[in-house]
Nucleic acid binder design. Structure first.
Lengths: 224, 224, 224, 224
DNA sequence: CATGAATGAGTCTTCATTCAT
DNA sequence: CATGAATGAAGACTCATTCAT
């Protein structure tokens, strides 16, 4: 992204430098995520971040323009993960649009679960983002729900799902995924991630699957 | 000293003092809410708050122990509003549990809409709360969903709703209400609050209402 | 200048507050001048300034918007002094334009001598000024030479001085005054302020006084 | 190691090395001068300097001990230029001491004009110099005025100039030359360099040339 | 010789909080 | 009760300098 590599020619040092830059970025992004999990983004000082990442403060500024850009990078990192994992899950779900929706939702929830704080950073720290960054994030967020919307549309087109507002349903699915992080303090004492995914899937698909197709998706609609 | 009577039960001076205190609290809480809507809680300095409320900085500390307590108070204020408005809506909904659920959800959404930022402060600023405050807030949040859970239970008991996980469904309803604030930048370009409430109600009740009772609730299940 | 007083009404506290604000400004300006004499402006940290002035760092920001504004204020303070002292000297010099020029130059040199570093701050630190501040300073500098230019013009009009480029001569006089500060390390080992003023006056007036009026100004043209 | 010969007197490798060193120094000095013209010395970071000079930061430290030494080198470079150009101008002026003074002043002004910022660096950044460096600079400055003082003395000895304080007059001439840089923002809107030189020459020589020799120097005393 | 990644002390600035009036 | 001047710790960020390659 904002790597200091210059890409002027392709001498041997070039690749090594790029590799180091990538490693540093990851190191910093991970340290940032770790600390934020504990303290929230605002609660993490650049000093503390440097300590956690075992680098000097100054080095952070070589890789990220400032605290705001770092925040942006962390959020983008999660959205990138989602943009990779959700389509993978959809692809692995076979050709059935309903299965695809369920798989996409499960994948979304799993990423959120893995990076609980980072996943909901947008809600918490959007104030700190530049308006430019905000626009970028919003675009990425919308883009990341595209696989969901597409599967929903296919489901309706195939007569498997009722006529629905795909935008709203996609929004609900994402919200429910985020809900796992947002209300984790409450939910974790009631159920685990698998149950949460299963029950929410059942709940939403319950009113979305064409009534006469419901038998076909019993495994989704009536999780044991 | 300057007060005419010296705390002898409920003399007039005492009442006047209490009234002023209440007025000041409201003044400060409103100023805080106003500013936070624009800048987020962290972005509001005590100095700016004092200016907005047209009091001195020092005075804030007479009414609230500090910035954290003020945050707590603002959140509590919203939760209090919900704890008042939701039961009112339930009571006004007649005796039908399904209508009650719908009414409770609508009321919840309306409060969220009125105080968009303050309503989701818990998500954004919970880090700043003392653990004590956090416990209090969580308890209040759970309590505020009680009317929803109770109505859901009544619905199931009356055979109007399927057997459901009331905790989870209540959580979903609250999440959807908050979703209106959290994703307002996205939703507002698609629908208005009334449509949002109607469609979400339909969506969830779609899988909750006992199939053979669905005709009875057509107005909720098939908005417009 | 940027005093925090609000001037809303004229209650008793108002005057006291304004007085304190003025006292604080002076205290800070003096501390700044003292330190700058030793370290140059860039070399003075806000921390050190606070220590010298025996106030807290934060307080400086109540009276001056930042380090740049403080620099501006120090420069303006010197220019204000000049704008007061030079006209006073001119007024005290009687009605003779040549005497007025000499008096103005002497006064200018005396102020420079009293505030050696601060007087030439413009040359040294103009980079740190905002362009707005720069414009202000330049205007004040030009204005402060007005008495000189006016006296020169009067001298020419009265047939006491030759036809001259008043702008350039005024610039030379100011430059010579500043020269006392700029090259003090060199000059102080050759002569004292009085001699410097006398000799420079003689030098410049030597080619400015109308030849046939020279006898009249022998005391200026042939010091000692 | 990589050099063919090992420092045995003045073999070809040695010369090449010295040439490269000289070339590097010049490259760096020029880059420094260029940047300083825009940003002032303090405003130029070693990183920016490296970029401008198209070398690495580390390399600067091979040629100059640090930022302070670089500053010293830049100043010395200007003073060297003056020490070359002024005597050249004097030599080219023929044998007349008055012409020599005028020529020296013109040359001084021309160098100042060519390197406007660097020429007055002593005034601006002397604080950053080591006391050792300061001493060196002062000595060089005084030395650079020697041709002026010598010409002035010759003028007096030859009965062409009045009895004068050569130190002070030399100081004035240098100050006027520097004045062109120091007050360039003001002067440039009034006159160009040629006019400035001519008028200042006339002004000072006006009181320095022996009255009865004035006709002889009319071209200097009454510039068109 | 040359590079440029890495360091970390030091800078300006903000702001929650206190307290004399 | 109310004020707002004063405090000072803590934060983000810069940049001269070093050193492994």
């Amino acid at each position: 992204m904002s790597s200091p590599a210059r890409s002027r020619g392709n001498d041997p040092g070039e690749a090594a430098r790029a590799a180091r830059a990538a490693w540093r970025s990851r190191q910093l992004l991970d340290a940032a995520a770790t600390l934020m999990e504990r303290e929230g983004f605002q609660g993490v000082s650049m000093q503390a971040l440097a300590e956690e990442a075992e680098v000097s403060v100054g080095l952070i500024y070589r890789y990220f323009g400032g605290k705001d850009e770092l925040l942006l990078a962390v959020i983008v990192d999660v959205l990138d993960t989602i943009s990779t994992r959700v389509p993978e899950a959809v692809a692995a779900a076979g050709d059935d649009p309903v299965e695809e929706v369920a798989a996409a939702f499960r994948a979304y929830c799993e990423v959120v679960d893995e990076r609980r704080h980072a996943a909901v950073l947008t809600y918490r720290e959007s104030r700190a983002l530049s308006s430019q960054g905000r626009v970028k994030i919003k675009a990425m967020e919308v883009a990341s729900t595209e696989p969901l919307r597409a599967a929903l549309h296919r489901g309706t087109a195939a007569g498997l799902l009722v006529d629905l507002d795909a935008d709203l349903v996609a929004h609900d699915l994402v919200l429910m995924a985020h809900g796992w992080a947002l209300k984790h303090w409450y939910l974790e004492q009631k159920l685990d991630l698998g149950e949460y995914v299963a029950k929410q899937t059942a709940l939403l698909l319950g009113s979305l699957v064409e009534p006469r197709r419901k038998r076909q998706y019993a495994h989704l609609l009536h999780p044991h």
